[in-house]
Amino acid sequence: MVMTKADLVDRVCEQVGGFSKKEAADLVDLVFSTMKNALATGERIKISGFGNFEVREKSARPGRNPQTGDEIMIEAHQALTFKPSNVLRSTLNPGR
């Protein structure tokens, strides 16, 4: 099973109340687009109880095409890392 945005929209409708499906869908979209806009400007996001999102600069490094084995240069780029919070880690690993 995979949870999608539609499932989140249903949950917001049920739990928040007073929103039409359309309004709830717009709200879920707004939450993710607000996060995307922040990350696009290099801002870090810290959601307590969930985790942190951080844009990291990756420098160029040699790599290989896994299909052909050819050596290629991987260009410098930005990558996004997600670090789950300790609360989420222990939620997923009860009794540890």
Binding site: M3, L8, R11, Q15, A24, V31, I47, G49
Partner: peptide
């Protein structure tokens, strides 16, 4: 409530 609902549902 909306934002918390989203993250809670994901968790």
């Amino acid at each position: 409530v909306a934002v918390s609902t989203i993250f809670d549902a994901m968790i």
